[in-house]
Computed example of a mutant assay.
Amino acid sequence: MAITKALTAPLFTVVGATGGQGGSVVRALQASSLQYRVRAITRDASKPAANALKELGCDVLEADVKTADGVKKAFDGADIGFAMTLTDFTSPDFAEKEYAEAVLQIDAAKAAGVKTLVWSGMPHISNISGGKQSVAHFENKANVTTYARSLGGLKVIDVQPGTFFSNFLRHNAPRKLEDGSFVLTMAANPDTKLPVIDIDADYGKYVISALENGSVDTVLAAPEYITPTQVVEAFAKASGKNVSFTCVPDEQLQAILTKVRGEVPAVNMVAMFRAVREVGYYVGADLAPSNKILSTPARKIDEMLAANPKGVAELFA
Rank of each mutant, 00 (worst) to 15 (best):
S126V: 02
P223E: 06
D158G: 03
S126G: 10
Y206K: 04
P123E: 11
I199P: 00
T192R: 03
L154N: 09
V144R: 03
F168N: 00
G204K: 00
L194T: 01
D158E: 05
K205D: 03
A173E: 01
V156C: 08
A148Q: 06
S150P: 07
N213L: 06
S129N: 07
F235G: 00
P195C: 05
H171I: 03
I125M: 09
A210I: 06
F168R: 01
A238D: 08
D217A: 13
I157Y: 00
A236C: 06
F164A: 09
S134F: 14
V216L: 09
K132H: 03
E178W: 02
A136Q: 14
P174G: 08
T229P: 06
I128A: 12
F165S: 06
V144F: 10
S150D: 12
H171W: 08
A201I: 04
T163A: 12
G131A: 10
E224M: 15
T192W: 00
D200I: 13
I208R: 01
N189Q: 11
H171E: 06
T185Y: 04
Q230W: 05
P123A: 12
E224C: 11
L184M: 15
D202L: 07
V216A: 10
F168A: 01
E139T: 06
Q160Y: 04
E178C: 04
